[in-house]
């Protein structure tokens, strides 16, 4: 019973980890850029969700759509003004541009929103479903369902729409895509917007149980990288598997080891996977 409970918890939280990390892997897949500032967009999404709740009275699960839209637009601007300029620069310069971006967003949020911890109150955030001896946390379940929906939507978009196909073409070979009449610049812009927008969406979705403040991104950044690398950098399906893997590892490891060591277990699994299967758990050789 205890194991099943831990497994259920792990799957639920894993879905959330997946949705916040899909954006990171998308950005990498299409642009080849490791975005250290990704978690800051999570924080922005949380703030948008919070403000939508505080000003408009919207539940964060609905506010998440607004969070997505706002951060999508912001992402397009950031890609156009900053990221685009370093696409041909050495990869190290790209990474550190995003580190600069991280510092700027975090402190802009500190200036704009103040340092207070903010959290929403919703009627369901302290309720749980009971199935026999099993507890299923409602906010976790809601976040999980939202993650599934957004994952499906992304999959449809990438595989069924012209935009999605054009984006994948750009990811494979930007030059060839341009020759086929695809505006590669535009595709990259949309991909970045979509990537950070999805992360922001995930941020709003976790608001019912997580507090937002300007440095909340730091709690997620390493976790997000673990998820995408475990699954396979650049693979959307991989992010989902990676998210599940991280959620379940964290939850199950707590049964055998002190909770304090949960990240140690996680990182050791991470290093082992990297050493044995650098392409990640999903997908063939890259």
């Amino acid at each position: 019973m205890v194991v099943i409970q831990a497994l259920v918890d792990g799957i639920l939280i894993g879905g959330v980890y997946a949705v916040v990390s899909i954006g990171l892997t998308l950005v990498f897949g299409v642009m080849g850029i490791v975005n250290f500032a990704q978690a800051e967009f999570l924080m922005l999404g949380m703030f948008v969700g919070y403000l939508a709740w505080a000003w408009l009275g919207l539940d964060p699960l609905i506010g998440s759509v607004i969070a997505f839209a706002v951060v999508f637009a912001l992402g397009c601007v950031v890609q156009h003004t900053l990221i685009r300029r370093v696409l041909r620069a050495p990869p190290v310069a790209q990474i550190f541009l995003t580190v600069g971006l991280l510092i700027v967003i975090e402190n802009a949020a500190l200036l704009g929103f103040g340092s207070q911890f903010r959290s929403v109150t919703t009627p369901y955030q302290t309720s749980a479903l009971r199935l026999g001896d099993l507890f299923i946390s409602v906010p976790y379940l809601a976040a999980f369902l939202m993650s599934v929906v957004s994952g499906l939507a992304l999959w449809l978009f990438m595989n069924r729409s012209w935009y999605g196909r054009a984006m994948r073409a750009t990811a494979q070979d930007g030059m060839a895509a341009s020759l086929m009449g695809i505006d590669a610049d535009r595709m990259r812009r949309i991909a970045f917007g979509l990537g950070v927008g999805l992360t922001a969406f995930g941020g709003a979705v976790i608001l019912p149980y997580f507090t937002v403040h300007p440095t909340v991104g730091a709690q997620f950044v390493v976790l997000m990288f673990t998820v995408v690398v475990l699954g396979g950098l650049g693979s959307v399906a991989g992010a989902i598997v990676g998210g599940q893997a991280v959620g379940i590892i964290q939850s199950l490891s707590a049964m055998a080891f002190p909770v304090q060591l949960q990240n140690l277990v996680l990182f050791l699994v991470f290093i082992t996977v990297l050493a044995l299967r650098p392409q990640g758990l999903v997908g063939g050789a890259r």
Partner: peptide, 18 residues
């Protein structure tokens, strides 16, 4: 103002890299 110095630092970092 809290955060201003870090903000300026971050902007300068990005400028140098750009």
């Amino acid at each position: 103002t809290a955060g201003l110095s870090q903000l300026v630092y971050g902007i300068l970092l990005m400028l140098i890299i750009l």
